[in-house]
Design a protein around this nucleic acid. Structure first.
Length: 296
DNA sequence: ATGGTAGCTGTGCTA
């Protein structure tokens, strides 16, 4: 584990950047922050994370345990509308210019029996709490919870593809601008057959379909680098294990949590870790933290 | 064997 030198973060002059130095960036789908807050704070202390991108907080803004994070030395920005979804960024290296959606992010409108086509066209689909961005330690961090998709013939699947395509379009503009951007979170895509315990079990299901995989790999075409793959190329390294059917003891997992880095950021990466131990014991999330280290 | 688990303003929905 890296030994932190806190004095290195104090500016030498008032004009210097407030938080020079490396950034340890973590993404973690915590599956309810209120249930998991003690475990998350213990992880922050143990890992010495500088920035934590959180998904599935499962709460509204007024329910988020902000005080506990602040007591641990982290600022927090959270976007949650209900008991579903919810994303946040906790940072001890600054937290500026918070955005709760990316440009062009589609919403999702539930259709009800009896809705006429005209009525549906009139609906401006509400944005879901699946993306939050902030500038932390000089890095533009996006905590992302990509729609699951549910099934290939479900409207949520079409929504998932549109959501990923809109994100890629935004990501392209950021890359073209030369911004140091990290797109980190739960992507709900299994990019390769070697990222799943049994590809045959996923035939005809979401996460592995060619359009989903194409939408994921399109970020490489936009110039981005997936940092966990760069440092952890081994097959069958998982970040998620279902709660059911003893999936974790049997190591029947999926690799679905990733960090895409823009061209300006990717060269700064020095390593990545999947904290598999965090899936152990009582009260674990079904996802584990995924850590990337970024140099100056 | 059509189950199993976890979380949520839960008697069903979402993953």
């Amino acid at each position: 584990m890296r030994v932190m030198d806190c004095t290195a973060r104090i500016s030498a002059t008032p004009d210097a950047a407030p938080y020079p130095g490396p950034v340890r960036l973590v993404t973690w789908n915590v599956n309810s922050i209120r249930t998991r807050v003690d475990r998350v704070l213990a992880f922050l202390d143990r890992s010495q994370a500088d920035v934590l991108a959180i998904q599935e907080t499962k709460c509204r803004d007024d329910q988020f345990p902000t005080a506990a994070f602040e007591a641990a030395g982290y600022e927090v920005a959270h976007f949650g509308l209900s008991q579903w979804n919810g994303v946040a960024i906790a940072s001890r290296v600054g937290l500026d210019d918070v955005a709760t959606r990316f440009p062009g992010q589609p919403g999702f409108a539930k259709t009800l029996a009896g809705d006429s086509p005209d009525a549906l066209l009139a609906v401006d689909p509400p944005i879901e709490a699946r993306a939050i961005g902030a500038t932390c330690g000089g890095v533009r961090v996006w905590s992302l919870y990509v729609p699951h998709g549910r099934a290939l013939d479900d409207p949520h699947y079409t929504y998932k593809l549109a959501w990923l395509d809109a994100l890629r379009t935004a990501a392209q503009t950021w890359a073209d601008a030369g911004d140091p951007v990290a797109l980190t979170g739960d992507w709900n895509v299994i990019p390769f057959d070697t990222d799943v315990y049994d590809p045959a079990a996923f035939v005809g299901r979401t996460h592995v379909s060619p359009p989903e995989r194409a939408a994921f790999h399109a970020f490489a075409d936009a110039g981005y680098t997936e940092l966990t793959r760069q440092f952890l190329p081994a097959e069958h390294l998982y970040t998620y294990w279902d709660y059911q059917q003893l999936a974790f003891p049997r190591n029947k997992g999926l690799r679905i949590d990733f960090c895409w880095a823009s061209p300006a950021l990717a060269p700064r990466a020095t390593g990545a870790v999947i904290d598999r131990d965090e899936r152990k014991g009582k009260g674990a999330s079904d996802h584990v933290p995924v850590i990337v280290d970024l140099a100056d």
